[in-house]
Write a protein that binds this DNA or RNA. Sequence first.
RNA 1: GCCAACGUGGCUCAGGGGUAGAGCAGCUGAUUCGUAAUCAGCAGGUCGUGGGUUCAAUUCCCACCGUUGGCUCCA
Length: 645
Amino acid sequence: MKVTLKDGSIIEAEKGTTALDIAGKLSQGLKKSALAAKIDGKIVSLSETIEKDCALEILVFDDDEGKYALRHTASHVLAQAVKRLFPEAKLAIGPAIENGFYYDFDVETPFTAEDLKALEKEMAKIIQENLPVTRTELAREDAKKLMAEKGEDYKVQLIDELPEGETISFYTQGEFTDLCAGPHVSSTGRVKNIKLLRSAGAYWKGNEKNKMLQRIYGTAFFKKDALLAYLENLREAEKRDHNKLGRELKYFTTVPEVGQGLPLIMPKGAKVMQIMQRFVEDEEERRGYQYTKTPLMAKSDLYKISGHWDHYKDGMFVLGDEEKDDEVLALRPMTCPFQFMIYKASHHSYRELPMKLAETSTLFRNEASGEMHGLIRVRQFTLSDAHIIATPEQVEDEFKDVLDLINYMMKATGLESDVTYRFSKWDPKKTEKYIDNPEAWEFSEALMKKILDDIELDYVEADGEAAFYGPKLDVQFKNVFGKEDTLFTIQMDFALAEHFDMYYVDANGDKQRPYIIHRASLGCYERTLAVLIEKYAGAMPLWLAPEQVRFLPITDRALETCKKWEEIFKKVGVRATVDSRSEKIGYKIREGRTERLPYMLIVGDKEVEDGNFAVWKRGKGDLGPQDAEGVLKSILQEIEDLVIF
RNA sequence: GCCAACGUGGCUCAGGGGUAGAGCAGCUGAUUCGUAAUCAGCAGGUCGUGGGUUCAAUUCCCACCGUUGGCUCCA
């Protein structure tokens, strides 16, 4: 029997040898670090026997599949520990996920921090016991019977939902058996380094109508050092949390009297937002966008036309009572219907298209209380919003132009390497969530896919993430906790032009329906600010820094010179201040460092005399004395280089 | 909205059934200093809010509000 290895070499093996045996033949080291195998492209456990010629790859922890196998087994070890300590717990599901694993349990009382510690100890024991993990297959009825006997109602339900003809497999380690497709590592001893991170509630099958189960999150690594490094990383990342750092650095605050999800943006935060807004508005006007200013609220009539009343009412702040009042108003959750009314206020020729209407738009969404998070999920936010009304022929180019604009914004803010793209599609099963027009969905999703493939964008597809009126391309960013949020979005809309009866007159004098692209360019400013704080750990890029330069006089004798230069810097547009307090220079520098100032220019008797600044630069430290005018010029140059490229 | 943890001066935190403490920040004064904290003094809290238990509650119990991590939802 011939087995082809990853490097193309072929070795002879007897029928019935296992993947692990072959790993051992190759090297003892590989045998030790092997976690799973890939046979003819299929991921399997190492205990899998090989019966015919095949291609074999031994997977280790550095391979994603190896990682998943190890962490998947770790989740079984957790479940086994839970069963030992809490025999009444019912098992739900327990997959490996990015950076770790979780397992959902149905228990009477939620797990406490002490429970997690005890479970971790028990898991260490199970790992110590080094129980072999073995696979068995059962017929559907036998599988159901086995799980029903054990009282595992959720597993019975899972078996019922498996498609006809599917192999039903179980994995057993010691006294513990779990329904599972695998693959797993060969024994519990391979799991080695585990850490339980937290417990949290989670709905069975992710549906809020179902029972809430208790989920335990954990992680596992092959090497202890890697686990420790990962935990250290988590702690480091949390220090960058915008919700902590943004408050510490006085970018924003919240007070109970104002309310949840309603942050108060402080001068530093407002300055960064203002800089971004000016940048966005200038750039968009250059690209042919026209700015509008529309009301923050409207009668319910408007939202009824757009469909928001039917699809989005729960998310809106409604002023008044539909039963009692003649007129019911609502704060706007979106800008589109308002700008559509502007479009409709006059007749349009195809010659005027594409028409690009932009607005720096404040929106209101009544998020549920548990959903608010710092500046990332709020109830009022300001979006650099726009709607492009175009002929069908123009849609493709316009879509590409929007992507180009977004790219430019991401380069300017330095976020381009931190984002991923998500092609958000509808879900035909969720009819209540989406406009019912299957052909239009199929058509617009196909069009969008063509554009994305055309420009060779690297994206993932996500079902059920579309807007109610059409598919989207979302630009996603992960926060310090690894949670993903949308930063920018481009949405294809085939429905609202119809709802609003928008049209243009074509070359033949006939009325035609335009296409509409909804898009946000620098996302919403609150969220973008949060993302920037996290990415830069509060050290804003020079062009966005609320305070770019601070002059530090060493003695009061240098104060006049500092004030004179402050005026000059301000005149040419550099945001500069003077720290005029009678404190020691070390104290002022320490404070400037904690505030992440990009530049501190220190002026003492020597500098006054020589016309120099002693330059302190963020990330570089003391650069020594430099010619004052030269410093100003180089700072101006540096700012320009960051924005124009 | 659901599951859980948490809530003590502006911030970080200690304490704990007999009405509260530290450091930083603030204020006042002194110091004029060369690259991460000068010294001294002063002031600041009805311990998130409201109920209950108790002779007595900031501490124990309940509700609400808020914060945090998940779930659901979403820019």
